[in-house]
Amino acid sequence: MASNKSALLCCAALLAMSSGCAGTATGGVALRPDGSPGPERCPEEALKAMGYLRLSVGDGAIVELDANQTDARPITLYDGPVESLLDEDLGPFESPTRLYGRVWTGGPQVVIRYYAARPPRGSRVPICAVARLGKGQLRKRPDSKPGTAILEFSRAGVYVVDEFL
Rank of each mutant, 00 (worst) to 15 (best):
L47G: 06
P74N: 10
N68R: 14
I75A: 01
A61F: 01
R73H: 10
I62F: 02
D71P: 01
P74V: 07
L47K: 07
A72I: 00
A46L: 07
P43N: 13
L55S: 11
A67N: 04
Q69K: 15
P39G: 01
T76P: 02
E44M: 13
S36A: 13
A46P: 00
A67V: 03
P37Y: 06
L47R: 06
G51P: 01
V63Q: 05
L55N: 03
G35K: 10
T70A: 13
L77G: 04
S36V: 00
R54E: 08
L53Y: 11
G60D: 09
A49S: 07
V63S: 05
R54T: 04
V57W: 02
Y52S: 09
L55K: 02
R73K: 15
A61N: 02
P74Q: 05
I62W: 04
D71G: 14
M50V: 05
P74F: 11
L77N: 12
G51A: 13
Y78G: 02
G35E: 05
S56H: 15
T70Q: 12
P43L: 06
A61W: 00
D71I: 03
I75E: 08
L55R: 08
Q69C: 06
I62C: 04
E45S: 15
A49H: 07
G35T: 11
E45V: 11
V63P: 03
D71V: 09
I75Q: 03
A46F: 05
D79A: 11
N68L: 13
P74M: 11
A61G: 00
A49I: 01
S56W: 08
R73E: 09
D59L: 01
E45R: 08
E64W: 00
S36K: 06
L53F: 10
D79K: 12
A72M: 12
G60K: 15
E64Q: 00
R41M: 14
G35W: 07
A67M: 09
I75Y: 03
E45Y: 11
V63A: 10
R41A: 15
D66T: 00
Y52W: 09
E45P: 08
I62R: 10
E64H: 02
Y78S: 11
G58A: 09
P37H: 12
D59S: 11
A46M: 00
A46T: 01
Y78N: 06
M50E: 10
S36T: 03
E64P: 00
S56N: 14
